[in-house]
Amino acid sequence: MEGSDIEMTLAGYRVALEGCPAWAIANAVRRFLQGKVPHQSKVFCPKPPELREAVDAVMAPVLRQIEDEKRRGRLREEAARFASPVVRTDGEKARAAQLYAEFCRKHAETASAGHISEPERATLDPEKLAMIPDAPTTFERLAWISRGGQHG
């Protein structure tokens, strides 16, 4: 090859591999030399875009892992923001207990009248309300956010 052709070829590879880490380039070249790159030519060297494709394929699992870790970090941050946004007052808890007891009473009446199918006839226990955690629902969190983090 003429000197200018070699320089142009090298420049093409530099542009194609711009921003790629050396380990990924070395692994992709190794895969080419071992004949492990799908659809590679056994006669000609890979063109710059073909080599870049092979490098991207080598980097793909690492990039996925990095993105997964970023996503997990965002989820941890979001969970920390909602750790305890709403504190229910004793009055709110008493009102919820009253509503649940009323629901249980009506459910029992409807069940005894035969208006509920067999799987739904399970007896509801008002005492189970005490077992419900005080964690706010998604809707309560959204309401809390819309109020600017204020109770009300």
Rank of each mutant, 00 (worst) to 15 (best):
A80S: 12
A80G: 07
A80R: 13
A80V: 05
A80P: 08
R81D: 03
F82Y: 09
F82K: 14
A83T: 11
S84N: 14
S84V: 12
S84K: 15
S84I: 11
P85F: 01
P85I: 00
P85D: 00
P85E: 00
P85Y: 01
V86H: 04
V86K: 07
V87E: 15
V87A: 14
R88Q: 15
R88P: 12
R88K: 15
D90N: 11
G91P: 00
G91R: 06
G91E: 06
G91C: 02
E92A: 02
E92V: 02
E92M: 01
K93Y: 05
K93M: 12
K93S: 07
A94T: 06
A94C: 02
A94Q: 06
A94P: 00
A94N: 05
R95A: 14
R95F: 09
R95C: 09
A97L: 06
A97F: 02
A97W: 02
A97G: 03
Q98F: 14
Q98L: 13
Q98R: 15
L99E: 08
L99Y: 07
L99V: 07
Y100P: 03
Y100N: 05
Y100H: 09
Y100V: 06
Y100L: 09
Y100F: 13
Y100R: 10
A101E: 08
A101N: 07
A101W: 07
A101Y: 04
E102R: 14
E102F: 08
F103L: 10
C104Y: 05
C104G: 04
R105M: 13
R105A: 10
R105W: 11
K106W: 14
H107G: 07
H107E: 05
A108Q: 10
E109I: 14
E109L: 13
E109Y: 14
T110N: 11
A111N: 03
A111H: 04
S112H: 05
S112C: 01
S112G: 01
A113W: 08
A113H: 10
G114P: 02
H115L: 09
H115P: 04
H115G: 12
I116S: 05
S117E: 05
S117F: 05
S117H: 09
E118H: 11
E118K: 13
P119Y: 00
E120Y: 15
E120W: 15
A122F: 12
A122M: 12
A122R: 15
T123Q: 12
T123I: 10
L124D: 00
D125L: 01
P126V: 03
P126N: 02
P126D: 00
P126I: 03
